[in-house]
Design a protein around this nucleic acid. Sequence first.
RNA 1: GGAGAGAUGGCAGAGUGGUCGAUUGCGGCAGACUCGAAAUCUGUUGUACCCGUGAGGGUACCGGGGGUUCGAAUCCCUCUCUCUCCGCCA
Length: 426
Amino acid sequence: MIDIQLLRNDGDGVAKRLATRGIDLDWPLFRELEDQRKKVQTSTEYFQSQRNALSKQIGQAKAKKDEKQVAELMAQVAEFGDKLKQMEAENAAIQAKLHEFVDAIPNLPHESVPVGDSPEQNVEQRRWGKPGKFDFAAKDHVDVGAGLGMLDFETAAKLAGARFAVMKGPVARLHRALAQFMLDVHTREHGYTEVYVPYMVSGECANGVTSLAKFRGDLFKIEERDLYLIPTAETPVTNFVRGEIVPLERLPLKYVCHSPCFRSEAGAAGKDTRGMIRNHQFDKVELVQIVHPAKSWQGHEELTAHAEAILQRLELPYRVVTLCTGDTGFASAKTYDLEVWLPGQNAYREISSCSNFEAFQARRMQARFRNEKGKAEPVHTLNGSGLAVGRTLIAILENFQNADGSVTIPAALRPYMGGMEKIARS
RNA sequence: GGAGAGAUGGCAGAGUGGUCGAUUGCGGCAGACUCGAAAUCUGUUGUACCCGUGAGGGUACCGGGGGUUCGAAUCCCUCUCUCUCCGCCA
């Protein structure tokens, strides 16, 4: 949720910044709703205060057993009882309307974010590593996996339909090894606390990190329990602090969580249908930070570096891209995407998305900390993939493939693979 | 799955229709005493929102939602969660 005070005081400024995201803020409508709200709320509260005062007097009169005065006061209250009920209903309606309006407004982009309306306007920050040269025709992960007999999309389709994967043998183990490796690096070297969480959350939690009204269609819902399968561990982990006032000295909170993620991919029909680039279910190791507002931009750079460290240790070439205003997610003020090199696609593809949400999610969740003056103030929240496990597996299969169809295991992972150096068809 | 008990401020714990946003204790903050500290004493100590330049005034909140009433922490309905016992189960 954006800061409603800012919306009231500087509607033009907010509208201008939202315009860079392609959002046309209906500022006149907001003003009209606000004017109405002011009128209705003020008079509702006036009537409430009158009723409270008279009720108090009735209590006093009853205590004195002054039945005559009680009757008089009751008559007085009755006069505006109906009016009060009507005002309260009107007030609730206008507040709900206003909330719905504000709830649908995305976060304001940070001033350092490049303006643009499509991914072509994203700005590359840096590159690490050099895409390897192959003296044979590089295959994509589907063919590499099929050649090994360890990646099976036919069986997955038989079990659950399109956009699922079955892994077998050393490839399944490699997938597990990757998650273990990432968790170890982040907990031992980057100061994160490992957490295990529910893979289903309430609608309130989902709405705490993004707009449920807008993105409900992207989630899988458990109808009979009124819960949603998590699209990312960000959802449960960030909501740890929902409704909390965190003591100053406990900040920053840094959590790392390995979880499966479930996405309906409703808007992605026909996109990345081959292989496991875009599946309904995938594993991810997620980094989440809850920080002091003065530290969030520093935290954003650090968190991004933590995710990059994984790619570097796995010797996977990648680049860092700043998403332009039009490509930045609903709740984010600024996002860096890490894109890994995929020889099979001859392209860099997203493998991590690191965002600073500033106070946007905190306001939605009512997550606060007690500041230096003792006042409760919204925290800032950050998160990033560190990394998407499925896509990391893809990157290894493609970047480390050999002419004979085998796949070399990056040195950093060998301890997690029982010393195995190569995966080959058995 | 069955039976029962409960959810109150940072914590503990009163309060069963009327000046209750809530007794009290602990904790926190400020002050007094002290060279300083402890102990003691005194005061203070929730959140959100609204109106107002301000001083100040007002509203809401006792797990969530709804209801009864002039008035609800207190009564009714409903949901959620916690605890105890029995059964079942990985």
